[in-house]
Simulated scan of single mutants.
Amino acid sequence: MSDPADSPLISSEKFDAQSLAFDGQAFSYYEKHGAETVEHAFAIANILHIHARVLEASSFYRRAFDLHSKSQTEFPLPQSLLQVRLLCLLKAGLEANTQEIYELEKYSVPMANYIRGVSAAWRSGDTEGSLKLIGNAFEEFHSGEEIDRLYLEIALRWLRSFGSIDFPSNEKEIPHHLYMYWDNNPPEEIRNNIEFHKKIIGDNFTIFDQQSAAAWLYDYYGKDASELFLKVRHPAEGADILRLHVIMANGGWWLDADLKIRSPEAWANLAGSKAGCQLFTTDNFVLHNDFFGAAPSDPVITNAMMTAWANMFIHPHLYIAFKTGPGVLNRAVSRALFQSIRQNVTLPALRIDNQSTFDMYAEEYEVAYKSGGNSWHNQ
């Protein structure tokens, strides 16, 4: 089995531009800034990580950690640097160094157990042991960070080990009603998409704009919710806030305006679902918030809405996908799974299907603004 110390880049204390010649962006950054501060070493590590150069990224995360004052007021925190360094080693197919895990434990026991848990799942296939080790370590991270995706992936593998994923059924059906939102002045393609759904769904379709959404929030959740919605820094954030509140109050299905239900038959097949909450995951275990359904007052949606509100006030500058978007659904599911596995709490009536099932019901709707990279759904 390989040892991280066998890597020339990791074992060497010399960091130079030549060692980054394989990555043009990292190479350019190093030539301009060097790697003699936490900020610059961390930036290079992130570039390498994004480009899937995980072994090399691990060495620069370690360098950033070594340069760090170890103060809990200097960001990124030392434990964050060390845990991502160790995770990158695991991604590279190497063992996480035991001494470094103990070093991480001095700063954060949950993060150390997170690394131990991922190692148990990836190195020995022990998904049950992995989940027990990880526990609710995800609470040490912002909603939507990688730990939520890994936790979901491991949990689904564990559940499949029993032969099937058998979530509890629900007495309530998901109301057969579709909701959609576009803030103001929808382009022609979106207007056509709205008309398509009006035609195939009829009275069980509701389209909100900013004005009607603010009025609805005022009537159902009060002045503060309405004003919070109107003050969001980006339309995507407003759509995120609205969708959670609407499905929480009314139940039903949410579909982003740049998606399309495939056919009247696909819509009909969604009727009568006994899942309290129906979610779909991407191949990378990010839960879709652009298309999902739930019964009114579903606990998973309730938890996601609570997290979105907390993020709006506590982490206002957080990346939108983590702050109010798919990340809050991933975090809500992480909590539900943890409570079921570790605290013997009955799992909510939750169903999670994969991307191919998602594609059976909904498809991308071709719109011109996407080709220009201006989709507010991608912010």
Rank of each mutant, 00 (worst) to 15 (best):
D258P: 03
G372Q: 15
H315G: 00
L133C: 10
P348S: 14
A275G: 05
D3P: 04
D183K: 03
F15N: 11
L255P: 07
K132T: 14
Q18N: 12
G251C: 04
Q210M: 12
A268G: 04
T282D: 10
I147T: 00
I314L: 13
I241R: 10
L133Q: 10
M306H: 11
N269V: 04
S371W: 13
L228S: 07
I44A: 00
L90G: 10
H142M: 02
S161C: 05
I134P: 08
H49W: 06
A295S: 04
P235C: 05
V38H: 02
G129A: 03
Q210D: 13
G202Q: 06
N269T: 03
D256Q: 12
P186A: 00
I165C: 05
V300L: 12
P187L: 00
I320L: 01
W158V: 09
F42M: 04
E153Y: 02
A155H: 12
G93P: 13
E153R: 00
V286K: 01
H176W: 11
P76D: 09
S2R: 13
L156E: 15
M111R: 04
A368S: 10
A332R: 12
E100D: 11
A310H: 14
I147G: 00
M180S: 12
S69R: 03
E265W: 11
Y30F: 07
P187H: 03
A21C: 06
V300E: 09
I134L: 06
Y61A: 11
F60W: 03
M248S: 15
H40P: 00
G202A: 07
L337Q: 11
G222H: 07
K323S: 00
R351H: 14
L178Q: 10
R63K: 10
G144Q: 01
L131N: 12
L131R: 04
A41K: 07
V118G: 05
Y361T: 02
H49S: 06
I194W: 08
